[in-house]
Simulated scan of single mutants.
Amino acid sequence: MVSLDRFETFKTVVEAGSLTAAAERLGQTRAVVSFTLKRLEAELGVTLLTRNTRRLALTEAGERFYGRCLGMLEQARLAIEEARSEHTQLRGTLRITTTVEYALAKVVPALELFRRTHPELKVHLSTSSTHADLISERFDVAIRLGQVSDSNHRATQLATFKIFAVASPGFVAGLPGGEPRTFAALQQVQSLVHRRLGDLGLTHVESGEQFFFRPAAEQSRIVADNSSVLRGFALAGQGVAILPDWLVREDLESGRLCRLLNDYRFAEQGIYALYPDTRHLPLKVRVFIDFMKDHA
């Protein structure tokens, strides 16, 4: 493939009228310009310029090629500017992935304001209970909750949130031993388990005693990969679920769900923005991450 640099040299020679003048414009020696021109002609297999001691003249093939050169160089310039604008201007498309429940609770309301602030930027939001592959699926940023274990990407913590053990009043009333008030008692109650939920730190408020709580999927009646689904089961009186405060706040305030283990605190969970580990972080990603730090 012929280098665009040779196209540029040929265009400059034609417009300057001589090799010497073209060399001055390009900041090169006359010999380098002459060599580049000869290489271009050899690669094309045609003579573009006739030379004598006084002036240069375009051949018929050279005139046609010069016209095409102008168009190709302009298209190349526009392509380069467009690619750079993805990194220096808030244009193009921002591709985001996160969970359904977090999108509805936090991302969608935030994007309304973000889009008004940056109207030239398009947003594609994908929601899934599974973790998308940012590279193969071409996402700019993923918002993930809990603990981040994917070391192939960079991560920025946006915020933290609390998690509660919750159940419906009807379910609690039907427990043989009544409401579980200790860590050991909670372990004996049928739980609604999130498939990706790992070990959870649990601390007694007064004594400071710490435990690790991990609902066992094999001992649970229901396992799901979506917090909204687990909330639905909890509201239906199917068991105890451990859910984010932002998801169940209204349920707790209305009494549809009640919080268990008030004398204990689960370790706060993180909200992270993950993005590909590239040398140049696009401006749209950087601005969106900074924006979400105030709205996560």
Score class of each variant (00 low, 15 high):
R84E: 12
E206A: 12
S149I: 15
A184K: 08
I135Y: 15
H131N: 09
V148Y: 06
I143V: 12
V2D: 07
A224V: 06
E81L: 14
Q75T: 04
F65R: 02
R6T: 08
A216I: 12
R286V: 07
R195W: 05
K284T: 11
G201H: 08
H295T: 10
E24C: 01
L235H: 01
I135S: 13
R259Y: 06
L70V: 14
Q210P: 13
F288W: 14
T9R: 08
D5W: 08
L197E: 04
D5A: 12
L90Y: 11
G62C: 04
T29E: 04
F183C: 10
R39H: 06
S34L: 08
K162C: 08
E74S: 15
L186K: 09
G170N: 02
E43V: 07
L281N: 06
L78A: 13
L48D: 05
R256I: 03
L261W: 08
Q269A: 06
S136Y: 04
L261Y: 07
Q187L: 03
Y102I: 03
A167K: 00
R30Y: 11
D294F: 10
F266K: 00
L40Q: 01
F171E: 02
Y66V: 13
R39S: 09
L4C: 09
G62L: 00
P180K: 12
G270Q: 09
T20K: 07
L252F: 08
E268P: 03
L58Y: 02
T278K: 08
R181D: 06
L235C: 07
A83N: 13
P176I: 04
I135E: 15
Q75V: 02
H153N: 04
L197N: 06
A159I: 01
N152D: 05
T53R: 04
F10I: 09
Q269V: 01
R115K: 15
K106V: 01
L26I: 05
K293H: 11
L49K: 04
V14I: 10
D277A: 02
G62H: 00
S3F: 00
T47Y: 04
Y102K: 03
T9P: 12
R279T: 14
A83M: 10
R231A: 02
R68A: 14
L121K: 12
I80Q: 05
A273M: 02
D225V: 13
A216M: 05
R91A: 05
L73K: 05
T203C: 04
L186R: 00
I135R: 15
V172W: 01
V193F: 08
I163L: 07
T20C: 00
K122H: 14
K284N: 03
S18R: 03
A173P: 06
